Amino acid sequence: MKVILVSLFLMALAGCASNVVTDYDSNAVFGNYSSWAFAPKGKDQSFTSLDGGRIESAVERELNRKAMRKVEQSEADLLVTWQVVEEERLERSGVGLGFGFGSGNFGWGLSSAPPVREIQEGKLVVELVDTETDRVVWRAASRRYLNENQATESRRELIDEIVADMFEKYPPGA
């Protein structure tokens, strides 16, 4: 019974772990920000990718919920930048194999580790930049990852969830 209670407690505790990490400039007065715009794209990119469109729609929806107006870049209090930071990780798939023999307190064994494969993933990072100081005043990074194996609908849902989680923590202290 103790094992079951401890297991339930640990699962509940793991469920409370945040899927995003935020940071902010403690000197920024977030009450002064009422308008925003997306920062201009880089010189190399003149288009919006599929995930980029999903991210921008989600950011726009969340900032609208915060009663912030989307305006032209020259009139904005904040510029929104975002990027998907690619990371590689190793994943073990399957199980290892092993066998052994012996008797009593002595024996021999042989085993192989499970197969390992490299996975490319991306974590979403969103930053808000004060247009007067050109400094980042708020930053959120996801602990959940996008990968190429996800279906279109699950990618959209994941992006919506991640961005909603990010902006739950904006403005800081609210």
Results as ranks from 00 to 15, higher is better:
residue 4 I to S: 01
residue 5 L to M: 06
residue 7 S to D: 00
residue 7 S to Q: 13
residue 11 M to I: 13
residue 11 M to V: 11
residue 11 M to H: 07
residue 12 A to Y: 13
residue 14 A to N: 10
residue 14 A to L: 13
residue 15 G to F: 12
residue 19 N to M: 11
residue 21 V to F: 06
residue 21 V to L: 11
residue 22 T to S: 10
residue 25 D to W: 05
residue 25 D to M: 06
residue 25 D to R: 10
residue 28 A to W: 02
residue 36 W to Y: 05
residue 41 K to I: 03
residue 45 Q to Y: 07
residue 45 Q to V: 09
residue 51 D to W: 05
residue 51 D to R: 10
residue 52 G to Q: 10
residue 52 G to F: 10
residue 54 R to D: 01
residue 55 I to T: 09
residue 55 I to L: 12
residue 60 E to G: 04
residue 61 R to S: 11
residue 62 E to W: 04
residue 63 L to F: 13
residue 66 K to P: 15
residue 66 K to Q: 15
residue 67 A to V: 04
residue 70 K to T: 05
residue 71 V to C: 13
residue 72 E to T: 02
residue 74 S to H: 00
residue 74 S to M: 03
residue 76 A to R: 02
residue 78 L to V: 05
residue 81 T to P: 06
residue 81 T to F: 08
residue 82 W to N: 08
residue 82 W to D: 02
residue 84 V to N: 10
residue 85 V to H: 09
residue 86 E to F: 05
residue 87 E to K: 14
residue 90 L to E: 13
residue 92 R to E: 12
residue 93 S to V: 12
residue 94 G to T: 05
residue 97 L to E: 00
residue 98 G to C: 00
residue 99 F to Y: 08
residue 101 F to R: 14
residue 102 G to R: 06
residue 102 G to T: 08
residue 107 G to P: 06
residue 112 S to Y: 09
residue 114 P to S: 14
residue 116 V to I: 15
residue 117 R to N: 08
residue 118 E to H: 14
residue 119 I to F: 12
residue 122 G to P: 14
residue 125 V to I: 15
residue 126 V to K: 08
residue 127 E to S: 15
residue 130 D to A: 14
residue 132 E to G: 05
residue 134 D to P: 15
residue 136 V to S: 04
residue 136 V to P: 00
residue 137 V to A: 03
residue 141 A to K: 09
residue 143 R to Y: 00
residue 149 N to Q: 06
residue 150 Q to E: 05
residue 153 E to T: 09
residue 154 S to D: 12
residue 154 S to F: 06
residue 155 R to W: 05
residue 156 R to K: 15
residue 160 D to V: 02
residue 161 E to G: 09
residue 161 E to F: 02
residue 161 E to M: 04
residue 163 V to T: 12
residue 165 D to V: 07
residue 168 E to P: 00
residue 168 E to F: 13
residue 172 P to Y: 03
residue 172 P to V: 11
residue 172 P to C: 08
residue 174 A to W: 14
